[in-house]
Design a protein around this nucleic acid. Structure first.
Lengths: 141, 141
DNA sequence: GCAAATCAGTTGACATATCAACTAATGCTT
DNA sequence: AAGCATTAGTTGATATGTCAACTGATTTGC
């Protein structure tokens, strides 16, 4: 968790001077990856690295900055499609290199160690995920 | 970072029903570890897992709940000693077992893998730490 | 021995996060 | 087809986090 916090702050130090938070950056990355059509609001929430219940207002703020736009889905009028705007794409393009470069600091670990680290974290996450789900079940009785 | 977020939420699901946040729990653990005399405010901040500039008010809230008390240091009147109260100790005692148990979900990894994971994270952190420090230097010019 | 710099901590203004209650649309059931 | 449950998303109240400016205490340099 110490390491995650440091990485968060490292990425923050790169993106925040451009007036977006790390979470907003994460949303933009997700939407860029999602392509033309975009994604419904709660789909974005599910893909976030840090889970956040405040997804609506997070995207409100991105919309205010014209980095994202939204429109109601016609087939299912409960849903809202969110898309990254050209301005958003341009901002990400500017950030790609510096973010990537800042994360190169992780290469204090070699490729092999890094791969193993990721694999271990994946396995750890499974265990924790299971514990959280169980915990939640118990609470909801 | 996904894994860290999950663990954070797992610990949160254990401690939050007792009306403290994960960060507050972290402060209490630090103060219990610090013993009788306690610690000056900013010393606590340095030892936190997630760095937080809002340490004063975080401790304000713990003080309101009578889990912590404070007094000015006589030798250096700028400083404030923070100590965990008996109520705080009692709360931690109640939480020790459930927190420990919830974290046993990490034993999807064997002891050896876990040790290696920690070592890799430590090394990763060094790299990131260095990058952040350098980054900060550049900014402050 | 005194001004300037530094340090420990606090405060105010503001941004963001969180939780529960809500609206509107759709799906399911009989 | 009516009624209830579910789903997608929003909103309001409130708690917490964040940044910069500040106070008061202690060092440091000259």
């Amino acid at each position: 968790m110490r390491t995650a916090d440091l990485i968060r702050r490292l990425v923050g130090s790169v993106v925040e001077p451009h007036d977006i938070t790390v979470q907003q950056y994460n949303v933009l990355r997700i939407l860029r990856g999602a392509g033309e059509q975009g994604l419904p609001t709660l789909e974005i929430a599910e893909r976030m690295i840090e889970q956040t219940p405040g997804i609506t207002r997070l995207i409100d703020r991105l919309e205010e900055k014209k980095l994202v736009d939204r429109k109601r889905c016609e087939e299912d009028r409960r849903r809202v499609w969110c898309r990254i705007t050209p301005t958003g794409i341009a901002l990400l393009a500017k950030l790609d290199a510096p973010v990537h470069e800042s994360l190169s600091s992780l290469s204090t670990l070699g490729a092999r160690d890094l791969a193993q680290l990721v694999e271990h974290l994946d396995r750890a996450r499974e265990g924790v995920h299971h514990a959280l789900a169980t915990n939640h079940e118990i609470k909801s009785r």
